[in-house]
Design a protein around this nucleic acid. Structure first.
Lengths: 206, 206
DNA sequence: TTTATTTACTAAACACTGTTCATTAAATTT
DNA sequence: AAATTTAATGAACAGTGTTTAGTAAATAAA
């Protein structure tokens, strides 16, 4: 029975077509213009068809947000090449913030928008945010290495990791949601972020 | 000509009625259900009437977000009673995060939603975010006092203030947008936030 | 007081949104 | 060749922010 296999394959291909098209629309046109109808238009299918492959918009956006995490984790990949743990730590923060600046819409979807978390809630009772947790684990590992070598003033891994994440996320969030540019001092956000990051590392350093 | 004065008064009263009703809907029903039609229903006027008093929804939400800042700044008011600068510093952070936890929808509107910043942009070229800047100034003052007494390791006021703000905002943001509760470890968010805040202050301390 | 004008308000429409469902047409199985 | 399963859609529903032409009341002018 090759027909069932072919049909299954075609179904997956259609799912992928929808996802990739949705990702494209999302990146090119932004969150707001990423409507079911816009995506449907691009693939030349009716809006209702999308609902045969994704339960609702939140589920589709969840799939897009996972692609975002692929890219973020990829940018973390080469961190192991950095020998100095403290420099590796700083670079992690830097790349995180840089990702947010370079891919604001995607960062927004991954870390700010309600949508993917709604999808998670609707999926099953007590389902976990795997890709988010995976990124958090990268941060934990690097902090642990710094702690092991006695480079930090803190000793609580979890609290330190959450603090660092909050810090870089806060920076990213304020920037993306236009809370910095509305200030009287018109400052170089990029430079200011680097300075803040330096301050954080310096403060945590022993 | 008392008629013109009465008309002007009535106009202001109507504006206030719309604003207060909008605030009520916003707090009681949340951001999502705060539609022009919902507000119009409550005051028993047609939706179009609201547009005679507020240019668009962003402008109305901006007015609501200003009410939020009134409340936030009010919670900062009694900080001067705290003699110890470092403790005052910690309390500021604590009250900020507490405000976010207790008034998630309002915090969201004030610091996360695009809406009020859109209103600001549409208003005039180069108009500033006064209420946001005022809160930031409170933070700056307290940090300055700590610096003056040589209590901090840092010396750049602006960068330190932005870092602290990013930190507490990041915490608030992750919490409100459900990025913490999706983690395997089901932790007491409140307690974790307090610990993180302590870590920040300790790290900045000389 | 009657006429003219300004003011306040609204019904209805426009262009969107996510989502559902009965119906149709094609592919597959019997 | 007939019956059944599958895939796709048109059309609708209920909602959104916003605009505009038209109405009725209040005010000003004659």
């Amino acid at each position: 029975m090759g027909i069932q296999e072919r049909k299954e394959r075609e179904k997956q291909e259609m799912r992928e077509l929808i996802l990739q098209t949705a990702r494209q629309v999302f990146i090119e046109e932004g969150y707001e213009k990423t409507s079911i109808r816009t995506i449907a238009d691009r693939i030349e299918y009716s809006p209702a068809t999308i609902y045969l492959y994704y339960k609702d918009k939140d589920q589709l956006l969840f799939a897009i947000h996972e692609l975002g995490f692929d890219a973020l984790l990829a940018s973390f990949q080469t961190l192991q090449e950095i020998a100095d743990p403290l420099e590796r730590f700083r670079q992690l923060g830097h790349r995180y913030v840089q990702f947010a600046i370079n891919n604001p819409e995607m960062y927004d979807l991954m870390f700010i928008s309600y949508s993917p978390m709604n999808a998670l809630e609707k999926a099953q009772e007590g389902s976990t945010w795997d890709c988010g947790y995976q990124s958090f684990h990268t941060l934990c590992s690097i902090i642990q290495e710094n702690m092991d070598q006695g480079l930090l003033r803190t000793n609580d891994l979890y609290v330190t990791a959450l603090s660092v994440w909050s810090f870089v996320h806060g920076l990213a969030c304020l920037h993306i949601r236009n809370r910095l540019k509305a200030f009287p001092e018109h400052l170089n956000t990029q430079q200011l972020m680097d300075q803040s990051l330096d301050l954080l590392i310096t403060s945590l350093k022993v």
